[in-house]
């Protein structure tokens, strides 16, 4: 028991996850990332290309890839699929006009072989906006319940206020951990409890 604990602890230090942030343009992918890493979120320009952020979350080192969502950039998304442990799909909850577009893009991602098995977190972002759609509305509009190929969860959040960003990340990290790293998932809930 004692030695095993030590070995596990050491292994945990090296644990890395690769998380891919995708979504239509104007969803708030970059803003979420900057908020999570405590950076200034004013004056963020639409992403031309991609950003990488690496930070520690619980016992894990997260490598987060945030790829621009403009239509001209979407064909390049596939260059980032390799080795992805989790997909975070960010939705602008105020964007009723492009829900169909959003649904199509998401569904086509889910059929990708290289994303098979990746956990899917849907962030219903911009909940701070008056009149934004609720997570339930978005879940139904995107028909998330029909997804059987991936572990998924939808999480209402706001990149501006920071609401629910950490808890959403907790879910996805735990979900990946329970798949990849046997019996090491107990440490994260403790941490989030402390946050409460």
């Amino acid at each position: 028991m004692g030695l095993l604990t030590i070995i596990r602890k050491n292994r945990q230090k090296e644990k890395e996850m690769r998380i891919l942030f995708l979504g239509l343009d104007n969803a708030g992918k970059t803003t979420i990332l900057k908020k999570l890493s405590g950076e200034d979120i004013t004056g963020i320009s639409p992403t031309l290309g991609f950003n990488i952020k690496t930070f520690a979350h619980g016992n894990y080192t997260l490598n987060i890839w945030d790829v621009g969502g403009q239509r001209t950039l979407r064909p390049y998304w596939r260059n980032y699929f390799e080795q992805t442990d989790a997909l975070v799909w960010v939705v602008d909850s105020g964007d009723r006009m492009r829900l169909q577009d959003c649904k199509q893009e998401l569904l086509s991602l889910l059929t990708e072989d290289r994303l098979a098995g990746a956990s899917l977190l849907v962030f219903a972002n911009k909940q701070d906006l008056q009149g934004s759609m609720t997570d339930t509305e978005i879940r139904d509009a995107l028909n998330l319940r029909s997804i059987t190929t991936h572990h998924w969860k939808i999480w209402p959040c706001s990149a501006v206020t920071g609401e629910n960003l950490v808890s959403g990340l907790d879910w996805v990290v735990n979900d990946v951990a329970s798949r990849l790293y046997y019996s090491s998932t107990t440490s994260l809930p403790k941490r989030s409890l402390a946050v409460v």
Binding site: R139, R145, W152, S167, N174, S178, L193, V195, V196
Partner: peptide, 14 residues
């Protein structure tokens, strides 16, 4: 939500 179990899947608690 913070305490949601790590492997809840297809039918997440809303």
């Amino acid at each position: 939500n913070l305490k949601s179990p790590p492997c809840s899947t297809q039918t997440p608690l809303q």
